[in-house]
Amino acid sequence: MENREKQNVWKKVMAIRGMGQVITVTIGLIALWIVFGLLSPSFYSARNVGNLLRQVAPILIIGIGQSYVLITGNIDLSIGSVVGMSCMISATLMTKGMNPWAAMLLTILICIGVGVLNGLLVAQCKLPPFIATLGTMTVARGVAQIVNNNYNTDAIGEAAQGYRNLFYYGSTFGVYNTIWIAVILFLVFDFLLSKTRTGRHIYAVGSNIEASKLSGIDTDLITIKVYVVSGFCAGIVGLITSATAGMGTMDAGNMYEMYAVAASVIGGVSTLGGQGILIGTVVGAAIWGTLQNGLQFAGAPVAMRNIVIGIIVIISVLLDVIIRTGKPRKSKKSNHSNSVSGTSQGS
């Protein structure tokens, strides 16, 4: 009886769209853990596991935002710069004596504003998302530089200790707060995406925007919403960055937009829209973090790490393409053959 229930749970999990690929990638992740463990035994030390997860957390958070945007068939290139902007604005406000919590709220609101702007440019002004967010990417980086007159900020000081603990240094139940933040954001956004109407509409827009419009979905609003999510997530990561460094750095978040795409795509989110689940992004981010951390442990220089990670991204997308085209589903022709084989069996 119990066994049967277990089977049902397993069936249910496997019935979730895209779970197949997530499991494949998870096997890859476990393989990496084994390899790095063999290369350097201290890879498994409690300290390193904690550090690894704390490294993964920000990538996961921006990955969530990017996944939302990718599932609608768009892309957000601005998030790396928004991380930098959030880092610089929060730190500058704090060094100017603003209450850290007020500074945090204001920063997040500004980042959401960038999301709204991206959404409007793409949905209302019909700009190609690549171009629109390339523009806001440059603007946001400029803002990050201008807020403190083209200097990194001073230390955000004693008054912000609570803020720094919340976002980086503190732990709750023996787990770093940064990791908790990532876990909570994942749970919230995964729920929104998989269980709510808005989530369903996000997939619909990415799958066929015309059909969605004709079904009465406000597709512009959905587009704005996903950019707001990605702006918000980037804002949170910016806060983590300023809390970590204890100051604002202008080049914070550099290249993060690409890391976010990598985490999403490795985890099975399609850049063409309509496909992907957030648990995949979690695994994708974990692979990214494991490679960074593990290669560092194995003594590989930074340049080497970049090369390896780049290759892994290409291979995972390549595998995805091969798996997809190997299946008899993509083309219309094979659909015909499906229906026919059905008929011939019947007769």
């Binding site: 369903r200 619909a204 990415g206 799958s207 066929n208 059909a211 969605s212 309509g274 496909q275």
Partner: peptide, 12 residues
């Protein structure tokens, strides 16, 4: 045809 190919029959 105006269907979301990635979604299920019921979802469409």
């Amino acid at each position: 045809l105006n269907m979301c190919a990635h979604l299920s029959v019921a979802e469409n």
